[in-house]
Simulated assay, not measured.
Amino acid sequence: MNLRRTNPALYFLQRSLFYLLVIVIAFYLLFPFVWAVLTSFRRSGDLFLQPLDFVRAPSTLSNYAQVFANSSFQRGLAFSLLVAVFSVLVSLLFGSFAAYALGRFKFRGKSLIMYIILAVSVFPQIAVLGGLFTLVRATNTYNNPIALIFSYLIFTIPFTVWVLTSFVRDIPGELEEAALVDGASPLQTLFRVLFPVMMPALVTTGLLAFINAWNEYLFALTFMSSNRTVPVVIANYSGASQYEQPWGPIMAASIVVTVPLIALVLIFQRNIVSGLTAGAVKG
Results as ranks from 00 to 15, higher is better:
A220R: 02
F150K: 05
W247P: 04
A184S: 08
R270M: 12
L93D: 11
N143E: 05
Q66G: 11
F167E: 02
N144I: 02
Q74I: 07
M199N: 10
I154K: 02
F86D: 02
D46H: 14
F68I: 14
V161A: 04
R228W: 04
R108F: 15
R43S: 14
S151H: 03
L132H: 05
V22N: 07
T229F: 01
P124A: 15
I157S: 01
L218T: 07
N236W: 06
V197I: 12
V168G: 00
V168C: 06
F210Q: 00
L164I: 13
A78L: 11
F155A: 01
I211T: 04
V83F: 02
F155K: 00
Y100N: 07
I116M: 09
S166I: 08
A147M: 06
P200F: 06
L180T: 02
L129S: 06
I272A: 03
R104W: 09
L153M: 11
I154P: 02
I157E: 00
A98C: 11
Y115S: 10
Q125L: 12
Y237H: 03
V259F: 08
L175Q: 07
M198I: 08
T160D: 01
M198L: 14
A201H: 01
N236G: 15
S80Q: 04
Y28F: 15
T156D: 04
P32V: 06
L207E: 00
T134W: 10
R108T: 11
D53I: 08
T205C: 04
S225V: 12
P8A: 11
A138H: 08
P249N: 07
A101K: 08
L81F: 08
L148K: 02
V233L: 04
L21C: 09
F191V: 15
V193K: 05
V120S: 01
V197L: 15
W247T: 06
F167T: 04
L208M: 13
R43I: 12
I25E: 05
Q245M: 14
T258S: 12
Y142L: 10
A65H: 10
